[in-house]
Design a protein around this nucleic acid. Sequence first.
DNA 1: TCCTACAATGGACTTCGTCTAAGTCAAACA
DNA 2: TGTTTGACTTAGACGAAGTCCATTGTAGGA
Lengths: 138, 138
Amino acid sequence: MSDLLERLRGRGWRMTAQRRVVAEVLNGEHVHLTADEVHARAVTKLPEISRATVYNTLGELVSLGEVLEVTTDRRAKRYDPNAHRPHHHLVCARCGAIRDVHPMGNPLADLPDSERFGFTVSDVEMTYRGLCPECASA
Amino acid sequence: MSDLLERLRGRGWRMTAQRRVVAEVLNGEHVHLTADEVHARAVTKLPEISRATVYNTLGELVSLGEVLEVTTDRRAKRYDPNAHRPHHHLVCARCGAIRDVHPMGNPLADLPDSERFGFTVSDVEMTYRGLCPECASA
DNA sequence: TCCTACAATGGACTTCGTCTAAGTCAAACA
DNA sequence: TGTTTGACTTAGACGAAGTCCATTGTAGGA
């Protein structure tokens, strides 16, 4: 994750304690935290950090392309640091657990011209839904 | 749409003016209204209908499987009466226009076992994004 | 060290949606 | 047809998630 900090500094990001802490919290595989969860963890490292700053910093990381916003339900947005490798999501319908997945095939090619309505289609988001092992056996 | 009203009555739905109006508003192809838009249109036919009733009725139509909830952005949920034929959505990233689309292929089969993490996968939602003809030429 | 533009703060505000208590009415039944 | 009753509707309070803004603080360059 220090690569991230380096990259950000290289882009002219002013480095502050708050931004460093937010970047540190967003680290790992299958990490999909809400803004409030990020805030809660950031507070343990930097007690005076405000919610607004967490929102601002997450928004900046998203527009820099370093973090993805994930919306799997109508609750809070989640932030996914795995922006380098394109992927989709698998969500447990009961407990909300999320996994990053990499389906085969090319879904963009699966949309015929007759179904494009003249749109310039550039991207597709897929959300698989089901039950995780724990919820399926419960 | 009177089929819908018949089906609902057959399921023991108490028929009220409010419910009839909501069902009438949700009629057509490529209809994806927010709850407030449904309310605004319902009010022109039945001025005293309340927002809460529109929310209640939409929620009931969704749990009866007659209407789908669509979330294409972080704004309000949209309600899609095209629940009979499974489909996905194509969304304009600039103006938010939505079209129902039917991609080829079977995206569920495209998720290898090694990418299922033990989940029982039952469904997939796809959202294509791009620019509609008007926004692309602007 | 000082300056200044950029960042952080906290609280008010907005949007979307849910809940509640009280009033109303569709439809079953006499 | 009139009565009755419990489901339906209403208005407004409430809540969660997120944005905005005026003020205060500070990173990093001169």
